[in-house]
Design a protein around this nucleic acid. Structure first.
Lengths: 205, 205
DNA sequence: GTCTATACACTGATAGAC
DNA sequence: GTCTATCAGTGTATAGAC
């Protein structure tokens, strides 16, 4: 009925196109060309462009969040947990540098759909983990182990520091590195330690 | 020849649509409807969709950078300059919350065009200001007034901390605030001081 | 300057042969 | 499962009347 190999080839091609051009900008013809097949076969496997897109988006989005959840699940000491989170998070992004922009772009196009997908993928477990992390932060603040900072501000700062270089890559590369890719890669590589340092300084009592 | 009033109405409508839906997702019909005119008139004023889009994008992009340039031009002491920058930058974004996502989305679609536009808008003056700021950072590091940090890492961290809440708004609102807009507005309002605190802590020798 | 009507191109989707 | 050919819908753009 379905050739898993062909299906995978289509998904790989679709992912590349959708991630760069987004749902609206992507063309079925482009995807077919990249996959080395014709349009009709795309529809044979996925019926509509929207279904194909949703498959890609759900994969990426689900992957994105499940990895984060795993990261948060460790029951380490807070500072160690944060350090490990930053390191692992940056590693994931280095392997999927277009993912953040893809998700943000799609959010821009249709925020509601993203919220719905998030809920269908497993909002509860993620919420639970975030609440847990927030509680941990508040406890440490209470104990005086770390300086006062609002837990939501801290979490968004960590993620923002990690993601921004990927979200704004072309701009930063142009503004700071005169378009030099090698220098930008070096910057990305160094980023882990910098983010860790900034966050730890911010928490030092 | 051209009714400046009608032109402005069209631009306002086009901006709203393009900023949310992007170049590919926007429809001329939608823009015409929002402007209260018909499609033909859009073409009378701007000939093509692409020209209309470029007008909007260049305005937004140019505005975005010229404001930043002005901010950087003050010859204050570094720490004061950074504090003032964060404050003014956040104020600009609070007034144009969709701007960062609009620019990132367009970058994703066509990075080269963005680079070209950047160069045509006035890359030299911006580069000059960035180099100046980098020099200032390096000098202060040298003098020991601030702790060592790579100047490019510092600059991107400041901007990232400011912009991320706007870039990822729907996600953050959902993940951290259960979709509560009022809470999110409060978070944004507090953000200035948090970013300032984080950066100043990172620079404390 | 502004409208209605329409031309023209493109793209998603399907029919049907192999 | 895979292809070629084709349809139907949509969207940009223009022609021409007022």
């Amino acid at each position: 009925m379905i050739d898993r190999n062909t299906e995978q080839i289509i998904l790989d091609a679709a992912r590349q196109i959708f991630i760069i051009k987004g749902m609206d900008g992507a063309r079925m013809q482009e995807i077919a060309d990249l996959a080395g097949i014709n349009k009709a076969l795309l529809h044979y496997y996925f019926r509509t462009k929207e279904k194909l897109f949703n498959t890609i988006f759900n994969q990426s989005f689900g992957d994105f969040f499940s990895r984060i959840t795993i990261l948060m699940n460790s029951d380490n000491d807070l500072l160690l947990k944060i350090s490990k989170f930053i390191e692992a998070y940056m590693d994931i992004m280095l392997k999927n540098p277009f993912l953040p922009r893809f998700i943000i772009t799609e959010i821009n196009r249709n925020p509601q759909v993203v919220v719905d997908k998030f809920n269908s993928i497993g909002a509860e477990i993620i919420h639970k983990n975030i609440k847990l992390l927030e509680r941990q932060i508040k406890d440490e603040v209470q104990k005086g182990t770390i300086k006062y900072i609002d837990s939501k501000q801290l979490i968004s700062s960590i993620i923002g520091l990690c993601l921004f270089p990927f979200l704004a890559e072309p701009l930063l590369k142009m503004l700071l590195f005169e378009g030099d890719q090698a220098k930008y890669d070096r910057y990305l590589k160094d980023r882990k330690k910098v983010v860790e340092q900034i966050i730890l300084d911010a928490l030092k009592p």
